[in-house]
């Protein structure tokens, strides 16, 4: 075996379509330690196509850890074993020759499988649409420096806003709860004066949409935080819990 190469046994979830039955299938592939995990799957797919088989479908796009497209559970960990890293930035040097690797899709009722490792995450868009924005029309904004925001608040808002919407939090949670996603968006806007105006409505609407999508409840195990490739803190969830209670109980209807 040449320098840096490794022989791997992969167990990958294969499922032809949304309603087709799926199963784990085993493949062998030779990878190089400098490859990203997705490049390793590319190699496998090229081999499969050449053999006349269907390649493994998986979502990916930017391959630099920011678009949030890639999503696969690798050995029980969303995006694999390295903390703060998306699957596309996970490099094969994390593994060693002879390793067995399990590759599975995000598992959640709210994320139905489309094919193989590809799932439908539009539930996240609907949560944002329910209230995850500031209602301001183009052209109606005051001068940017009229809103003063302390550096620490801006930084904290950024920490939450760093969410890439990949869904690893849902995949990691044994309840398939999307609380970290929902709360990160909420907390990002909550930390900014621009977001305060609609805070109550936002808290209520986003939680209701989260529930309506069929995600589970948060049971404070914090697996989401550990799996989050952007390492977003569950402090956001406490913030949403508090705001939601305040908003829901003081609501006039």
């Amino acid at each position: 075996m040449s320098q840096g190469n490794m022989r791997l046994k992969l167990h990958i979830w294969r499922q032809k379509g949304a309603s087709a039955p799926g199963a784990m299938k085993t493949y062998e592939v030779t990878a190089n330690e400098h490859m990203s995990f997705l490049e390793m799957l590319d190699v496998l797919n090229q081999e499969l196509i050449e053999k006349g088989e269907e390649p493994v479908a998986f979502d990916h796009d930017c391959r630099e850890g920011i678009c949030g497209s890639c999503n696969m559970v690798i050995n029980g960990h969303p995006h694999g074993p390295q903390r703060g890293t998306t699957a596309c930035q996970l490099h094969m040097r994390t593994f060693k020759d002879g390793d067995e690797i399990f590759v599975e899709p995000w598992r959640a009722r709210a994320f139905p499988i489309i094919k193989d490792l590809v799932v439908d995450r539009t539930a996240f868009d609907r949560i944002i649409a329910s209230g995850g924005y500031v209602s301001v029309n183009s052209g109606s904004a005051p001068d940017a420096n009229e809103i003063l925001i302390g550096r620490d608040d801006a930084e904290e808002a950024f920490e939450y806003a760093a969410c890439i919407g990949c869904g690893a939090c849902v995949a990691a949670c044994k309840n398939a709860s999307a609380m970290l996603f929902t709360a990160a968006k909420f907390a990002h806007l909550e930390k900014l004066p621009q977001g305060q105006v609609e805070s109550d409505r936002r808290a209520v609407e986003m939680v209701m949409q989260h529930d309506a999508e069929g995600f589970g409840a948060c049971t404070n195990q914090y697996e989401c935080e550990a799996a989050c490739p952007k390492e977003i803190s569950v402090t956001s969830i406490a913030m949403l819990n508090r705001a939601y209670r305040r908003a829901a109980l003081s609501s006039k209807s």
Partner: peptide
């Protein structure tokens, strides 16, 4: 998951 694991739960 066929292969389950946790990190900090």
């Amino acid at each position: 998951y066929a292969h389950e694991d946790t990190i900090q739960a």
